[in-house]
Each structure stands twice: as structure tokens, then as C-alpha cells.
Amino acid sequence: MFHIGVLAPRLHSAAEMLRRIDEVSASHPDGHQQPELSLVWQPLAGGADAWQRNDPDTVRTQLALGATRLREAGAHFFVCPDDTAYAPLDEPGADLALPGLHAASVVAAEAQRHGYARVGVLGTRWTLEWRRYADELEPMGIAAVPLALTDQTTLHSIVFDELVHGRTSLRSRDVVLELIDGLRLHRCQAVVLGCSELGALVTPAVSPLPLLDTTRLLADAATAVAVGDAPLPHWRGGPGEPAPGTTSPDVRTATR
């Protein structure tokens, strides 16, 4: 059994991830031995200003500190429930203290499993300006379809003016459903909810397209790793991953 580290810039998204990990691990055949988990709330003090200054290095430094604290708590790997955080983590820099699951890799594997050929991507402006989803999906023959720039601005405002403050409205839900329906008209077969708060606004029951909810998918992937149903990740930040089969030094000695 491996120890999960949750690196959480926002507590709302962390709460949903913890709930999902608890649900999935409890339903596992070995659910009587649920994985150990540590949480570091790394709220990115000044992070919004760093984003506005186009200074992802500052944000990455703060997130890296959280990864170090998780390692000190005994975690074998980390998962981050905030999609936007993966953009600075993808920036070049020193290796993170722990290997982590990457949102784009997890989503791409799920899209491939379902046989999707074309998926839309929703998220903050920073997530949508970042090409990691396309970089993961396109080698699998899956097209990643972004929103138009005006729609990106609209969605970014909904996320930061309402959702991150715990507010939802029928108007905002209808706007997001229209965006998803527009992606459906562009022949998308599913849509990535690349922001944890969007899952509270749009549910599978009302969505015009199947949802690839990154928070749920990352929680499921973290549980699979923790119970030994999937291998430990190798990614430690930066734009790429080591070649398959390589293992970081602290992972070699990890025991279940």
C-alpha cells in the first residue's frame, strides 16, 4: 500500500478529491485496508499576482515547497486536484521532491480507453493557453479542441468570479452548457472538465457530452496506484516524463 500525497492550492477541490478517494478505496476488494493519505494546503500566497505578471516560476516554487512537505509526511507520490497548477509545474525547473500523477496524462488515458477521437477542453484561461492536453492527446490520434478566445474569457470569469468563491448560478450553468453544446457541434465526443469547480456546476445528467472530470479521474488514478493496481508515476515536474521503466531513487525503496 502506497501513501498518497494531495497537493491542494484550493481546499474546495481538495475536499472533492478526498471524498472520491474515500469512496473508491472503500469499494475496492481490499477496501478494509484503505490507503494512507496526507494533505498539504498550499494556497499560493500572491499566486494570482504572479499569474498576472506572467511569473509561473514563483507559483512553481510555492507548489514545490508543498511537494517537499508531502514527502516529509511520508507520501510516496502526489496528486494535485487543481488543473491550473499543472501549468507552472510543467515549467522547467528542479525536480519536485515527489513523483506525481499528471492531469493531462490521466485524462488522455481515459479518453483513449473510451475510443474518443475528438474531445473539447474546458478550464481557466491559463489551462486553455497551455498545450499539455493537446500534447498528450494528439499522439494517441485524439484531437483536443479548445474554446474560442471570447469563450475562454467568459469561462475564466465564471470560474474566478463565482465558482472559486463557492457560488453557482443557473445563468452560469446555462452558459457552460452552451459552451459544451458548441463543442458537440464541432464534432467533439466528450469534454474535459479541466477545473475542479466545474464539476459542481455541470453534471453528467445535464451535459450534452460525456464528461472527463479531471478531479474524479485523478482521484481514481491515485487510488489505483496506492493499492497497487497501477504503477507509481515518474513525472517530477517539467515538460516531459522519464522514459518508461525508469524509477526515481526514493520510489525504489518504497514498500507496500
Rank of each mutant, 00 (worst) to 15 (best):
S169V: 00
S13H: 00
R125F: 04
V107Y: 05
R19P: 03
T215V: 08
D161L: 05
H165T: 06
A148F: 00
A205N: 00
F77R: 15
A143M: 13
E162V: 01
S157A: 13
D22E: 15
L96T: 08
R167N: 03
H165R: 11
R173G: 09
L212W: 01
V107T: 09
S196Q: 04
V225G: 10
E110P: 09
A200S: 10
R60K: 00
S105K: 14
Q189H: 02
C80G: 06
S172N: 11
G100M: 15
T150P: 00
R173C: 03
L11T: 03
L163Y: 06
A117L: 07
H3W: 09
R53H: 15
V59D: 01
D250H: 10
L65H: 11
A48M: 13
R71I: 02
L65A: 07
D83E: 09
S13G: 11
A104P: 11
H156A: 04
L11E: 02
P139T: 08
A103I: 13
S248R: 14
A190K: 11
L96G: 10
L137K: 12
A14K: 03
P92R: 02
G245R: 13
W41S: 12
G199I: 01
P81T: 04
L39Q: 07
L185S: 13
S13V: 01
R131F: 04
P249T: 12
H165A: 08
R171M: 01
R53P: 12
G141Y: 11
A224T: 04
